[in-house]
Simulated scan of single mutants.
Amino acid sequence: MPLIHVYSPAGTFSDAARDALGEELTVIVRELERLPMAPYNRSTTWIYFHEVPPGHVYHGGRPGGTEVIAVEVNFFEGGLDEDGKRALYQRYTERVGEHAGLPQGARVPVYIVLREVAPIDWGVFGRTTRIEELRVPRPGEPPI
């Protein structure tokens, strides 16, 4: 049940690139968290893309500079071990770079922050849940 925010300068991703990136980020995090791909379970991964207008990103206290892309991934405690986190950094950086149209081998200006959330700190449909519950597919349950 990852909740992901992608912040990028306006125009970084075309509509098609954003759609493809959203699908790929979903698959990567679900694979690394060992979460099922059943329709209901997939629908619990939410991604918000935020385009930031020119002049609204500050570097060193001033507007402008490098066009950094920020990705925040919120996930349940125990969802990713250290190897999973390292794999996520690498795979997300590659996917963001490709869909932002950067040349292969170029340094990708992406900062990734992972937030591991304790079950008590994440309310879902009026209650809490745990990663172990999410790893069990819900057969026949319609997507959210």
Rank of each mutant, 00 (worst) to 15 (best):
P2H: 05
G126R: 01
G60V: 12
R62F: 15
I112V: 07
H5S: 15
T66A: 15
V29I: 15
G101C: 06
E72T: 11
V57E: 15
G61R: 08
E67T: 09
A10D: 11
T45Y: 00
R34S: 00
P103T: 05
S14P: 04
I112S: 00
V136K: 09
V96P: 09
V124E: 05
D15A: 08
V117F: 01
I120D: 04
N74C: 05
E23H: 13
L32C: 12
V96K: 05
G79I: 05
D81G: 03
L32Y: 11
R42C: 07
E24D: 15
H99T: 01
H50A: 10
A87M: 14
L32I: 05
T66K: 07
F13Y: 08
P139W: 04
S14I: 04
I69E: 04
W122G: 00
G61M: 14
V73E: 09
V68K: 12
R135I: 00
N41T: 11
L134I: 04
V57A: 15
Y89A: 15
D19Q: 15
S8F: 03
Y89R: 14
K85Q: 12
K85P: 06
L25C: 10
A17K: 06
A118W: 01
S14K: 00
R130P: 00
S8A: 13
E133T: 00
L88R: 03
M37S: 14
W46P: 03
L21G: 02
T45H: 04
Y92A: 13
Y40P: 02
T129F: 10
A87S: 14
I120G: 08
P54V: 08
T44E: 09
M37G: 14
P63A: 13
S8Q: 04
G78S: 08
L88H: 01
H59F: 15
Y111S: 10
T93F: 07
A106D: 10
